[in-house]
Design a binder for these strands. Structure first.
Lengths: 350, 350
DNA sequence: GTGAAAGCGCTAACAG
DNA sequence: CTGTTAGCGCTTTCAC
């Protein structure tokens, strides 16, 4: 905080005018002063390198120009890409981002939001941990600009930008069935309170039911660690061995995707013939570099544009801040199915 | 900023005491009030959900509890991992991070720092774009707590946490020579103003000179895009074809590493026999998941602990804030050479 | 054109 | 134990 402690008053004295005039200068109200004083003020400010104290400005103006960004798991590539893209989208504006990592804890999410409110943020971007989130609803009702990131909250319409789930999962299912894989499993993380995971799971189950797969719940793998992944893959292999056709797995995010590929490798299974693996990939920069194409034989992915997600999120929030009464908007960002070798089952295997 | 606008005064009235008492309560000075009033204050605060206005607190206390974090390129995996790890290290503290992305522009770096100073940040973490940075030096001289992240600044001793370069590059060189690769090249990005790139380049050149390689500068590839990478690899292949032994490349960060692998694939070159590729890998999250092991045949990497880097950075800054006069510290975080298939040249090729 | 003064929400002497 | 008061650095009426 050691901003040389030079204040508006110092400048005023130095120029030989009052605080008021300096303040006016800072706020571009040049019509209230002579060209001469304006010029002199400019000089002094340049020489001294004076920076107006935003804290004091905020106290008066009731605007902090700060946006709170609460992310569920800063360790995941989704989050990195989200920070990057929202950050980029905020660039032209005067807003700064404060990042908080709730680390998948609802309690921490609550705490951070409280702390950010204390910080007087002008708005909040929340990648929430919980679908059931009355606290968030009440904040929104109190007029705090809030935009959700990818995850919905029950019983209230927020501004939100999210990845389109329905067509994405369906596209992957279509592709895998066409290639001739036998059983198809969905590999996800605990989902009770996370909306996209729920959506994806439901779409998947609906499809299996349509296909008259009995007891479809068997094919939803909820995994928290590698050991579980390995066991699930083993089970799946056993099932499909009886069919004479290999199985496939759809992973609902990049973390599970990598974990699944790693587990398959550990088990000595080769893609695409022993097993087909594909999944959502939100690794931002690395998507553009073609990471998925370089992993193992090349991974088939559902690749959404993180840049777009971030851009929409930022825009929604700025719009909400500017027009608190505007109607809520939900923006779906599509994910593109990029077919690579990991699911290109050779026809003779079918 | 719509914090329901409830202030310390509202609480005071509601409890029937003065602002002072509320303030004391907020600051834990319970010895200044009766157990009874304390209890009543607690009740009212809970009921109202009152949050003290940090802006006002900051104005008084001259502490914003905000740390500015200026990153050179938020798109790179290094940055994501750095944000994550510094963020984690700040968790227990009351400080919040404001992230600014200078996007490799020195001008933007300057602007952001000014803006953050205006924001009255209590300290700065800078992953600077320029070794030659008098502005940063003058800020430090003015008593602003500053910690550098990985990149040094000339002519001034800052607190800094950085990746150890000397032993890392040397270890990679030793390994590649042992495996029997002919020419070894270093693949880097423009480095004039970036200290680690300079260091790594110098260490590399010194080694080549020691090996009596003529005109060693030929083997430093400074690349900005994929096309250049492809051309450089072609040149290198031509050179080593004459030797009857394949060449190898050391990449100085994960971006160049991925680009190089991709280019080699494009050229139809297989690792490790046609070409050996290895490099620094700072992709944090993915390191733990073993990404490098999954790319192509598995990449040999120099893997530093991002967690450690972030932890040290945060600690250095907090220490500097607490003890402005403490002597400066430079902390080197070692990178571990992890040998994988991409450089395991089969002996018969030698 | 310019300035005096009040006040944003909070803290910290100083008095009782 | 509790309250009065004077600011923190800035913006904004209202007067001149």
């Amino acid at each position: 905080m050691s901003n040389k402690n030079i204040t508006i008053l110092d400048i005023a004295k130095s120029v030989g005018v009052s605080k008021t005039t300096i303040s006016r200068y800072l706020n571009g109200k040049y019509e209230y002063m002579s060209a001469d004083t304006r010029e002199r003020i400019k000089k002094v400010i340049e020489v001294t390198g004076f920076q107006p104290n935003k804290i004091a400005q905020s106290l008066k103006s009731q605007k902090s120009m700060l946006i709170g960004f609460v992310i569920a798991d800063i360790e995941s590539p989704f989050s990195s890409a989200a920070i990057k893209s929202v950050g980029n989208a905020m660039l032209g504006t005067d807003y700064n981002l404060i990042i908080a990592n709730s680390d998948n804890s609802f309690e921490r999410e609550q705490e951070y939001i409280q702390s950010l409110l204390g910080q007087q943020v002008d708005g909040l971007i929340v990648n929430t941990v919980k679908m059931n989130n009355p606290a968030l609803i009440s904040l929104a009702n109190n007029g705090l600009p809030i935009v959700l990131l990818d995850r919905f909250v029950n019983d209230y319409k927020f501004d939100i930008s999210y990845f389109e789930n329905d067509r994405s999962v369906t596209a992957a299912m279509n592709h895998l069935e066409e290639m001739g894989y036998s059983h198809i499993a969905l590999c996800t993380q605990p989902h009770e309170e996370i909306s996209p995971r729920n959506f994806r799971r439901e779409i998947f189950l609906k499809r299996l039911k349509k296909n008259r797969v009995e007891n479809p719940e068997r094919f939803v793998f909820v995994e928290e660690d590698e050991e579980l992944t390995i066991n699930n893959i083993k089970r799946l292999m056993d099932l499909s061995n009886k069919e004479g056709k290999p199985p496939a797995i759809i992973c609902t995010n990049s973390v599970t995707l990598l974990r699944t590929v790693k587990a398959a490798r550990t088990l000595g299974l080769r893609m695409p013939d022993d097993i087909g693996i594909c999944g959502f990939d939100e690794w931002g920069w690395a998507s553009e570099l073609g990471l998925a194409g370089m992993i193992d034989v090349g991974l088939t992915t559902l690749t959404p544009s993180m840049q777009e997600l971030g851009k929409h999120t930022a825009e929604l929030l700025l719009r909400r801040i500017k027009r608190p009464e505007a109607s809520k908007k939900e923006i779906a960002v599509p994910a593109q199915l990029v077919v690579r070798n990991s699911t290109r089952l050779k026809k003779e295997n079918t």
